[in-house]
Amino acid sequence: MTTEGAHRKIIHIDMDAFYASVEQRDFPEYRGKPLVVGGSPEGRGGVVATASYEARKFGIRSAMSSKTAQRLCPEAIFVFPRFDAYKAVSNHIREIFRRYTDIIEPLSLDEAYLDVTMDKQGIGSAIEIATQIKDAIRTELQLTASAGVSINKFVAKIASDMNKPDGLTFIGPSRLEAFMEALVVEKFFGVGKVTAAKMKAMGLHTGADLKQLSEAEMIRHFGKPGKFYYQIVRGIDNRAVQPHRETKSVSVEDTYQDDLITKETMLPELETLSGRLSKRLERYGLKGRTVTVKFKFHDFTLMTRSLSLSEWINDHESILDAVKIILEKAALEDKRVRLLGVGLSNFDQQHTDEKQLRLF
Rank of each mutant, 00 (worst) to 15 (best):
S66A: 14
L277R: 07
A63E: 06
L260N: 13
V48I: 12
E328T: 08
G43P: 07
L344R: 03
F297M: 14
I127G: 01
L357P: 01
R98V: 00
D115S: 07
V48P: 07
K134R: 13
G341K: 02
I137T: 07
I93L: 10
P34N: 05
N238W: 09
L273Y: 08
S150K: 10
S306E: 05
F27E: 08
K211I: 02
E42G: 05
K164E: 07
A17D: 13
K263V: 07
G275S: 14
A88T: 03
T247F: 00
Q257K: 07
E328N: 07
G59C: 01
E269P: 06
A51I: 00
K279M: 08
S308V: 15
F27T: 14
G203D: 06
E42D: 09
Q350W: 09
S318C: 03
V291C: 03
V233G: 00
T301S: 13
W312P: 08
E29G: 13
G122K: 06
I60W: 05
E264Y: 07
E217D: 14
E253V: 03
L273C: 07
S40W: 10
D209T: 11
F80I: 01
D254F: 10
E271Y: 11
Q142S: 14
E186W: 07
K224G: 04
A331F: 10
K296F: 03
P165T: 15
R289C: 08
D334S: 09
V233F: 01
A55S: 03
G288K: 15
H12Q: 03
C73L: 10
D209Q: 11
K120Q: 05
A6Q: 13
E42I: 00
I103T: 08
G46N: 13
S278D: 12
L260R: 15
R71Q: 09
Q231A: 14
I96W: 15
R44W: 14
F297L: 12
H298K: 11
A88E: 12
K294W: 11
D166H: 06
G38Y: 05
I151H: 00
Y230R: 02
S90K: 02
D16Y: 12
D161I: 01
K324I: 01
Q356V: 15
